[in-house]
């Protein structure tokens, strides 16, 4: 019994100190550095034009990625769980590809596809469509790296639920849209919200792929993570940490939302 207690206490100690060093300490340091030169400088670093632009661009890219991936996620999960077709497993693994590929490689992939070396380039040039080193490229890269999140959350839930409820509704005369709205959607609601929060968190923090396609044009194609990197490389630590604190605050909000959703869906399950 005594030995048990000893093991437990040492494990708790280990876990707590690890979390403190790896997570809490960096967060505290971010806060300390951000406020090192007083609140006025902190506020100034955030309200300065380029920082605001970066923030807006990050929000734009995040909203676009979440919107696209919500639709794509629901559609692909629906396809993967409610229909049988050849190549289903292949499609499922393709959707997971962005998890396996390094974001930098994904970024390069978009450069190859839409940049100067691409066979599409003359056409894009003629139509005055700018994708690489412009906002569309950033959005595409963000969508790419966050593609699997919602599908991955939905597939197990929809698989477990099977097709019976949908078939029951169909046998009573419900059309496809009614079935989706009244039967499918209420059943996947919590899993979908959970996937959306994960997708949001990842989209806001995306660095690698966006870094490659952005071109780092200040005030134009810089997202928050890219802006932080530039500030840091210029030895402007206070501003870098001030902007970083914004991302940290967003992350904490998402974490809280995520936990709430998890708690709600668990409550729902245990009530049922």
């Amino acid at each position: 019994m005594k030995k048990d207690k000893l093991v437990r206490i040492s494990l708790i100690f280990l876990a707590v100190s690890f979390i403190f060093i790896m997570l809490v300490l960096p967060l505290l340091l971010v806060a300390k550095e951000a406020l090192a030169k007083g609140f006025a400088v902190y506020a100034n670093s955030l309200t300065e034009g380029i920082a605001v632009k970066a923030m807006i661009l990050t929000l734009e890219a995040t909203v676009a990625a979440v919107l696209f991936n919500t639709i794509f996620g629901v559609a692909s999960a629906w396809l993967l769980t409610k229909y049988d077709f050849k190549g289903k497993t292949f499609l499922a693994s393709i959707i997971d590809l962005p998890f396996a590929i390094s974001p930098v490689v994904a970024g390069l992939f978009f450069i190859m596809l839409f940049g100067r070396m691409s066979p599409l380039y003359p056409f894009l040039q003629a139509e005055h469509i700018k994708i690489v080193f412009a906002i569309p490229g950033i959005i595409l890269a963000t969508i790419f790296v966050t593609l699997p999140f919602i599908t991955r959350e939905l597939v197990p839930v929809m698989e477990a639920q099977g097709r019976d409820e949908e078939e029951a509704a169909a046998s009573m005369g419900a059309d496809g849209f009614t079935i989706f709205r009244k039967i499918t959607l209420p059943n996947i609601k919590w899993a979908l919200l959970y996937g959306v929060t994960l997708c949001t968190a990842r989209a806001m923090g995306e660095f690698g792929a966006v870094s490659v396609v952005s071109g780092h044009i200040r005030g134009k194609t810089n997202t928050l993570p890219l802006h932080i990197e530039i500030l840091y490389n210029e030895y402007n630590f206070t501003a870098a940490f001030a902007v970083a604190s914004v991302l940290v605050i967003f992350a904490i909000i998402i974490l809280i939302v995520r936990n709430y959703i998890e708690w709600r869906s668990k409550k729902k399950i245990s009530a049922v």
Binding site: G162, D164, E165, E167, A168, A169, K182, I183, N187, V272
Partner: peptide, 8 residues
């Protein structure tokens, strides 16, 4: 349905 397929 065998599983009843009630709308949960």
């Amino acid at each position: 349905f065998q599983s009843y397929a009630l709308f949960r």
